[in-house]
Amino acid sequence: MRAPEPEPTDSAGYLDVDPQAASGSGRAWWDANATEYLDEHGAFLGPADFVWCPEGLREADAGLLGDVAGSRVLEIGAGAAQCSRWLAGRGVQVVATDVAEGMLRAGLAYDESTGVRTPVVAADARALPFPDATFDVAFTAYGAIPFVPDAERVHREAARVLRPGGRWVFAVTHPVRWAFPDDPSERGLTATRPYFDRRPYAELGASGAVLYAEYHRTIGDHVADVVGAGLVIDAIVEPEWPEGHDAVWGGWSPLRGALLPGTAIFVTHVPG
């Protein structure tokens, strides 16, 4: 039996939405749009490359996970598991999770084309199906955190499944970007809404159902969520736009990247 066609978008904007009603929208949206997303961004991300952000920062150069040789590594919100596949190709014991089975299924084709089999698990980042203290490192590159109303639960789960001293690294849209239009042109250089307006960007169907939601958190919000989960912040990395990088991804572009940060990467660890 074919899955029902997703409801078309009727309205969109920065809206007050019921967190409970929006809680599961990410799963349905990414399931429905996996192919379109990978058609648009797959070449940039590569089938087995570890790209942290639209600025093109790669783990091979940044080393934000530290030395993972001999470690057990967990990717949260992995999409098609490109980052995990890069790690697996280097002999790292890694598991990739994502709430959207459509994204994980899309990754199977990458397994075939690269010859690197990547273990995947369909799981909500807020309720990971792993025992306590299972992994040495956990990470997400733009996964999970922007798409749930209760990101503090993601951090608590990451802390729970990490061993003492384990590292949790996550990349998100730089919070300052939310004051500006998501536009790669000069129109995206003028602030049009308050940085402290925490209403999510949401897309609604004619029925009023939340089809998509992406949440804004200030730097202070992210810090509070991480500290509240019992984690220690080691660094906040703000990648600069590199010279010669001409790719445009949504509101990211060389024009904006020269003036505004686009990504914030938090490097944290579990005490002990």
Rank of each mutant, 00 (worst) to 15 (best):
A127W: 01
G251K: 04
H174M: 09
D225L: 14
P119F: 03
G115W: 07
V232P: 05
V169R: 11
A235W: 09
V121D: 02
F147T: 08
F147Q: 08
Y142V: 04
E243A: 15
P149S: 05
L189A: 03
V169H: 10
T118K: 02
A125M: 02
T192R: 10
D182L: 05
V154P: 02
A213K: 09
A209N: 13
V154S: 05
V172A: 11
R193S: 07
V154A: 09
D111G: 01
I219P: 10
V226D: 13
Y215E: 11
T140A: 04
G165T: 05
A202W: 11
A213T: 10
G208I: 11
R153Y: 00
W249L: 14
G250D: 08
D132V: 00
F135C: 03
R217K: 09
Y142P: 00
V120T: 15
H174I: 07
F139G: 09
R117E: 10
H222Y: 15
E203D: 10
A138H: 05
F147V: 09
F130V: 00
V154C: 15
P149F: 05
G230V: 11
A235Q: 15
V232K: 12
A179G: 15
L162Q: 07
F139I: 06
F139Q: 07
G205P: 10
W168I: 04
A247Y: 08
A138Y: 02
R126K: 09
A123M: 03
G205F: 08
V121F: 01
V148L: 09
A122Y: 01
P194R: 14
F196H: 13
H155I: 02
R193H: 03
A229C: 12
A213L: 11
I236D: 12
Y212R: 15
F180S: 02
A159C: 07
A213E: 12
V226M: 14
G220T: 12
T118E: 03
G188T: 03
R187C: 00
R187N: 07
E243Y: 06
L231G: 14
V116T: 13
Y215M: 08
D111H: 00
A141P: 06
V176W: 08
